[in-house]
């Protein structure tokens, strides 16, 4: 098994998997407890506009995605906080417009778009080392912000009204959270693709939630489950000769479903044993 590490692409894949697990483990906890899963999905899909722009301008599509996901995150935040348009409507608008822009830019680009599928569905085995470095920088930013603002985000996700009552800069923190989600989306695109990003933002955190009621512990567990899903999925895809992104998501889905099922059984078992 270890001989695969002699290949550079395998080493890059492992590093990308670890970085993805850290990003999705930490930010996924906020996405799940603050219930912004579909805002995250909207940001992920809107980032396709940036991938198209990258092809059109002849730059790294990931850089285009970085700008587009940040811009769409802030745009969704602005629509939700400053207009009377409902959150899910805002998500729908950004989601569709971002994807349409991506398709239009790719149409305008002469020739055909290489690797397009890998941005849509992920391709952890072809992540170049330069992108691993970019992922590392993004993860460092995310971790720094979460460490500095841990108590603020705990209050904000627990009770927004209380956060306002004690004078927290709620709107600015909300925008910053959306920006962190946007950065996480960019980190995850490489691993599972923009269409499946939502899986890594939810599965590890949903798994971790069953085992703890402490947010820090939940983040640590969620990173570990993220590692299990990305590296386990990668290994399975290698063994079964299946596309890596989809295998990672399916493996995570099966483990999560099994664990949620076991939790239910355990609760029911405990209830039947407790005398009424």
């Amino acid at each position: 098994m270890l001989e695969v590490l002699q290949y550079e692409f395998m080493r890059n894949a492992l590093m990308a998997g670890v970085l993805a697990a850290v990003a999705c483990g930490v930010i996924g906890v906020y996405v799940v407890v603050k219930k912004v899963v579909f805002i995250s999905g909207g940001i992920a899909h809107a980032s396709f506009g940036g991938i198209g722009l990258g092809y059109f301008l002849g730059i790294n599509p990931i850089i285009g995605a970085l700008f587009f996901s940040l811009a769409s995150g802030l745009a969704i935040g602005a629509i939700i906080t400053r207009t009377r348009i409902a959150a899910d409507t805002a998500i729908g608008i950004l989601w569709a417009v971002g994807m349409a822009l991506g398709v239009a830019f790719i149409g305008l680009t002469p020739g055909y778009a290489p690797d397009l599928m890998s941005y849509l569905f992920g391709s952890i085995l072809t992540v170049p080392f330069s992108d691993v470095l970019l992922m590392l920088a993004l993860v460092a930013v995310i971790i720094a912000v979460v460490v500095a603002l841990y108590k603020e985000y705990l209050i904000l996700s627990f009770d927004e009204e209380y956060a306002m009552a004690v004078g927290m800069p709620v709107a600015r923190l909300y925008f910053l959270l959306l920006a962190m989600i946007a950065l996480t989306v960019v980190v995850l695109i490489q691993v599972v693709g923009m269409i499946l990003v939502i899986a890594l933002l939810t599965f590890p955190a949903a798994m971790a939630r069953q085992f703890t009621h402490n947010m820090k512990t939940m983040m640590v567990l969620s990173v570990l489950f993220g590692l299990l899903f990305t590296l386990g999925g990668l290994w399975l895809s290698y063994m079964l000769k299946l596309p890596s992104g989809a295998t990672i998501v399916l493996f995570g889905g099966v483990v999560l479903a099994a664990s949620l099922g076991l939790s239910r059984l355990r609760i029911r078992y405990r209830e039947t044993r407790t005398p009424a």
Binding site: V33, K151, F158, Y162, T212, H213, N214, M215
Partner: peptide
């Protein structure tokens, strides 16, 4: 307080807020 019953915070966490 409108919060999720499953929210990952203890009595201690809430008091510290």
């Amino acid at each position: 307080s409108v919060f999720d019953r499953d929210f990952p915070a203890s009595v201690w966490d809430v008091a510290l807020m």
